[in-house]
Computed example of a mutant assay.
Amino acid sequence: MASAVHVTTTDNAPATITPAPAPVAPAPNGRTVQITPGTALALVGGGTAAVLVVGTVLVSMLLAVAITAASVAVCAVVLKSLLNQQGKQS
């Protein structure tokens, strides 16, 4: 971006160079977020609901893992018992 330069001359004086004024930055829009009590209550309610949903999902996943582990343990005990009985009969 080229800046404009103004040159002034008179008959008896040397030429003087006056730089163009610097461009002024535009003023900020002034748009701010205002949280009303209703909006704050909605945000708190939404956050609470999200935490409860995530907590429920995590607890159900933990319960599924615990049930699977118990089932595998029961299967291991049954297989061990069957293998021990087969070894005693031979």
Rank of each mutant, 00 (worst) to 15 (best):
M1A: 14
A2E: 09
H6Q: 12
V7P: 00
T8M: 12
T8L: 10
T9G: 06
T10G: 15
D11V: 05
N12K: 08
P14I: 13
A15F: 04
T16Y: 02
T18G: 01
P19H: 02
A20S: 13
P21T: 07
A22V: 11
P23E: 07
P23T: 14
P23K: 11
P23N: 11
V24F: 03
A25Q: 09
P26G: 03
N29D: 14
T32V: 14
Q34E: 15
Q34V: 11
I35L: 11
T36Y: 00
G38Q: 13
A40N: 01
L41N: 11
L41F: 05
A42H: 05
L43R: 01
V44D: 04
V44A: 12
G46N: 01
G46M: 00
G46H: 00
G47C: 00
G47M: 03
T48C: 10
A49T: 09
A49Y: 03
A50Q: 01
L52I: 08
L52Y: 02
V53Y: 00
V53P: 00
V54A: 13
T56H: 10
L58G: 06
V59C: 06
V59P: 00
V59M: 06
L62D: 05
L62C: 12
L62A: 13
L63E: 10
A64C: 04
A64G: 06
A64T: 05
V65L: 08
V65N: 12
V65F: 12
T68D: 10
A69G: 04
S71W: 15
V74E: 06
V74P: 02
C75D: 13
A76Y: 11
V77E: 07
L79G: 06
S81Y: 12
S81I: 14
S81Q: 15
L82K: 04
L83G: 02
L83I: 06
N84C: 12
Q85H: 11
Q85L: 06
Q86L: 12
G87T: 07
G87Q: 11
K88T: 06
Q89W: 13
S90W: 07
